[in-house]
C-alpha cells in the first residue's frame, strides 16, 4: 500500500475503532439481555452515556494530584495506540509495522500502571483495593497473554503482529491444535483483562467483588467518559486481536479499497459473532470468588504453555 493511502487507511482504521468500540459494548449488553430473557437496552446506550458524561462537569477530590487528572487522557491514548497497532482491516499499515506483539502488551501494561496509580491517588479504600486486585490480575494474565502471542510467533517465525496475521491469513487450512489451545487461553485472558464475568462483573458495584469499577469510583464527568470509552476501546482491541490471531480470514493485504471493504464486512460480522459469544460466556458462567481468579488465570497460563509445547512437538516437522 502506498504511503499516502496507507496513512489514510490507518487513520480510518483508528477512527473506526474509536467510534465503533462503544457500539460493541452496547451489542454485548443487548445480547446478554436477550440471553437472560430481559428486555434489551437500545444498542446505542453507551454513546448516550458518553454524551451525557461529557456534558457534565467533572468533580475532583481536594487531594487529587495532576496524575489523577491526566490519567484518563493517558489511558485513552494508550488504548488508541493499541487499537492502531492491532491490524484489523489491512496488514500493511504504518503503525502496524512500528510495534510488535510485545510492545502491544507493554502499551496495555502502561495503561494499567497509570490506572492503578490514579486509583490510589485519592487515598480511598476502594480505589486502593481495586488497584491491588487489578495488579494481581494483570500480573497473572500478562504471562499467559505473552505466551499465547509467542505461540503465534513460533508458528509464523515473527513477533510482528501484522506479519503473523498476514501469514495466518495466507496459510492453507491446516489444523493447528496449538492454536486451538492458545485460542482458549486467549479467551480466558481477555475475560480477565476486560473485567468480564467469571473474574469481574462490569455491571456491579458490590464492594467485595468489584475490581475495575472500584478504580473508577472517584471519576466523574468527562474523565469518567474517557475512562469508560477507553474500557470499550480495550474490549474492542482485544476482540480484534483475537480475530486477527485466530480467524484472520478476509483481512486485506493488497492496495485495493475493495479488499478493505471486504475486510470491513468480515470484521463487522466476526465482531458481532464474537460479541454474542462473549455474552453467552457471561450468561453461562457465574462470577467466581476473587481468590479463585489466580486459578482461572493459572489454567489460562497452563493452556498457553501447552499450546507452545504442542506446537514444538507436533507442528515442527
Amino acid at each position: 500500500m502506498t504511503t499516502l493511502s496507507g496513512i489514510v487507511l490507518q487513520f480510518f482504521e483508528l477512527l473506526l475503532a474509536v467510534l465503533v468500540a462503544p457500539l460493541l459494548t452496547g451489542w454485548v449488553n443487548v445480547c446478554r439481555a436477550w440471553m437472560q430473557n430481559r428486555s434489551a437496552p437500545p444498542v446505542l446506550t453507551p454513546y448516550r452515556v458518553l454524551l451525557k458524561l461529557f456534558t457534565k462537569e467533572p468533580v475532583l477530590a481536594y487531594n487529587a494530584s495532576s496524575l489523577f487528572r491526566i490519567t484518563p487522557y493517558i489511558l485513552f491514548g494508550c488504548m488508541c495506540l493499541a487499537a492502531a497497532i492491532v491490524p484489523t482491516l489491512n496488514i500493511n499499515l504504518p503503525i502496524n509495522a512500528a510495534a510488535d506483539a510485545i510492545a502491544l502488551v507493554g502499551v496495555f501494561a502502561l495503561a494499567r500502571v497509570f490506572m492503578a496509580l490514579a486509583a490510589m491517588d485519592i487515598g480511598t479504600a476502594f480505589g486502593t483495593l481495586g488497584a491491588r486486585r487489578e495488579m494481581m490480575i494483570g500480573f497473572l494474565a500478562e504471562p499467559a497473554l505473552l505466551i499465547v502471542l509467542f505461540t503465534s510467533s513460533l508458528i509464523s517465525n515473527t513477533t510482528s503482529l501484522s506479519s503473523i496475521v498476514g501469514q495466518m491469513a495466507r496459510m492453507d487450512l491446516v489444523i493447528y491444535p496449538s492454536l486451538a489451545f492458545a485460542g482458549v487461553a486467549y479467551t480466558m485472558v481477555s475475560l480477565a483483562e476486560n473485567a468480564r464475568i467469571p473474574v469481574d462483573n462490569p455491571a456491579t458495584h458490590l464492594e467485595l467483588t468489584m475490581i475495575h469499577e472500584a478504580m473508577l469510583l472517584e471519576y466523574s464527568g468527562r474523565h469518567l467518559a474517557l475512562m469508560e470509552w477507553a474500557a470499550s476501546l480495550k474490549l474492542f482491541t482485544y476482540s480484534c486481536m483475537g480475530i486477527a490471531l485466530f480467524v484472520p480470514f478476509g483481512i486485506s493485504d493488497g492496495d485495493s479499497w475493495a479488499g478493505v471493504l471486504v475486510a470491513l464486512t468480515a470484521l463487522a460480522f466476526k465482531l458481532a459473532l464474537g460479541g454474542s459469544l462473549l455474552a453467552l460466556i457471561e450468561t453461562m458462567s457465574a462470577k467466581m470468588r476473587i481468590f479463585r481468579a489466580p486459578e482461572f488465570l493459572g489454567t489460562a497460563f497452563i493452556l498457553a504453555v501447552l499450546a507452545m509445547l504442542i506446537h514444538l512437538l507436533l507442528e515442527t516437522p
Binding site: 501469514q167 495466507r170 496459510m171 492453507d172 491446516v174 489444523i175 491444535p177 496449538s178 486451538a180 489451545f181 493452556l303 501447552l306 504442542i310 507436533l314 507442528e315 516437522p317
Partner: peptide, 27 residues
C-alpha cells in the same frame, strides 16, 4: 513461505490424530 508450508503440511488424518492427541493431553 506459503509454498514451503504447504509442502510441509502433514496429511489430514495425521493432523486429526495430532489434534486428538492434544485434546488427550488437555484432558
Amino acid at each position: 513461505m506459503s509454498s514451503t508450508q504447504a509442502l510441509l503440511a502433514p496429511s489430514l488424518p495425521s493432523q486429526l490424530i495430532n489434534l486428538l492427541a492434544a485434546v488427550m493431553l488437555l484432558i
